[in-house]
Design a protein around this nucleic acid. Structure first.
Lengths: 206, 206
DNA sequence: GCGTTCTTGTGAAAATAATCACATTGTGAA
DNA sequence: TTCACAATGTGATTATTTTCACAAGAACGC
């Protein structure tokens, strides 16, 4: 119901707000948040309106309260466990990426087919053989998976994930996964991203 | 002028088309491309219309010709050189990612501040000290940079890049870079991506 | 030869998203 | 007290993106 774009921006707002909070800033105006997130003040206000947060015309938005409100919107007060499948270069980068952060996202386990990787700890995260994926997901009631396996295996893995109860996939494989309508897939496609930059950087579109 | 979304999809289409070509497929229909890219046939047709490619109602689209047409649209017949700044986990993942592919994107050099990394080859790519970045960019006339440095350094690096002639940045740092209007920045924000999945996977938005 | 069945290309409509613009309101200076 | 100011919240508008829906045309079976 909340537009995807708004959800994306809310995630950004929250990160910037946390930064501001750490810096001791108590309140913030829409134009300030707009600057930080490359949007417009009106857009910020509209987004916050959509999640029902009210500021005051004098003080703007209360930083800690707004953070709490967005936390509540995302429904992620506590740690969320996710699994990662495919401990290649991208997989390892993500393991480090989410380890390092003080984020509430916890990659609780990783999986791979390669037996030289399985049953040991890689980037602070135990890597299991992929044959254990299904059981792990249902046992731990995991809802979200990160898919960093090769394109050729992605669909099969996605099917396993979904069959075991996962409802959201962050997919790095350059394939369009076929999934039921109830499953949410977010694709990250690096080749596409850089081609887009190449195109718009070339200037011929101006 | 061509919408961003269309550019994104064209990149996808091309990749799928190349796959099809390798498989010996000679022509393809809009609904087929739509399947592969999770769009609708109408959208595919509209996109191709926008770049002025015409299929035939009987044969659909000629695969090799359409690839050539998209190549031409992207203006990337030959190899494009880009630089990468920040040889951390994500940086190394990207180096491998673009090495392995048969893509036309070539990361010609990487840069870092850490002297244990500089002046040697990491993931098949020579890593220079960042002090050489500016000269390198202008000498080789590089137009696009990949920014995988920590958030705290991202803006300074972006300024250097832009000052040396770069016009497009693929930014992985969780910061909104302040750049002139003529510079194109594409942000990849992994935290945002996964929070989005968490939100839409939780089902409470349905 | 003729109707049926696929397509494509595209004008028109619908859905989504972003922006404008202004009434409203608390604050501080005169 | 009163006025100017600066910011919010939001109806209305505009812009962008997607989808619908159908004319047109070749291939195929009869």
């Amino acid at each position: 119901m909340t537009p995807e774009k708004t959800v994306e921006r809310l995630s950004l707002y929250r990160r910037f707000l946390k930064q501001l909070k750490d810096d001791g800033v108590k309140n913030v105006y829409s134009h300030h948040l707009a600057d930080l997130s490359r949007g417009t003040p009106a857009q910020v206000r509209r987004d916050l309106m959509l999640i029902g947060y009210n500021g005051s015309p004098q003080k703007g938005y209360d930083v800690p309260e707004l953070i709490k409100h967005i936390d509540n919107f995302f429904n992620t007060d506590e740690l969320v466990n996710v699994v990662l499948v495919g401990v290649g270069n991208v997989g390892r980068a993500l393991l480090s990426y989410f380890r390092s952060g003080k984020s509430h996202i916890n990659i609780i386990a990783s999986f791979d087919t390669d037996e030289t990787k399985t049953d040991r700890i890689i980037n602070n995260c135990t890597c299991h053989h992929i044959s254990k994926l299904s059981e792990f997901i249902s046992d731990k009631n995991i809802k979200v998976g990160i898919l960093t396996a090769p394109a050729t295996e992605a669909q099969v893995i996605a099917n396993t994930m979904i069959g075991s109860g996962i409802t959201g996939i962050l997919n790095f494989a350059p394939v369009r996964l076929k999934v039921p309508q109830t499953i949410f897939v977010e694709d990250v496609d690096l080749t596409m991203n850089i081609e887009k930059v190449l195109y718009f950087a070339s200037g011929k579109q101006v």
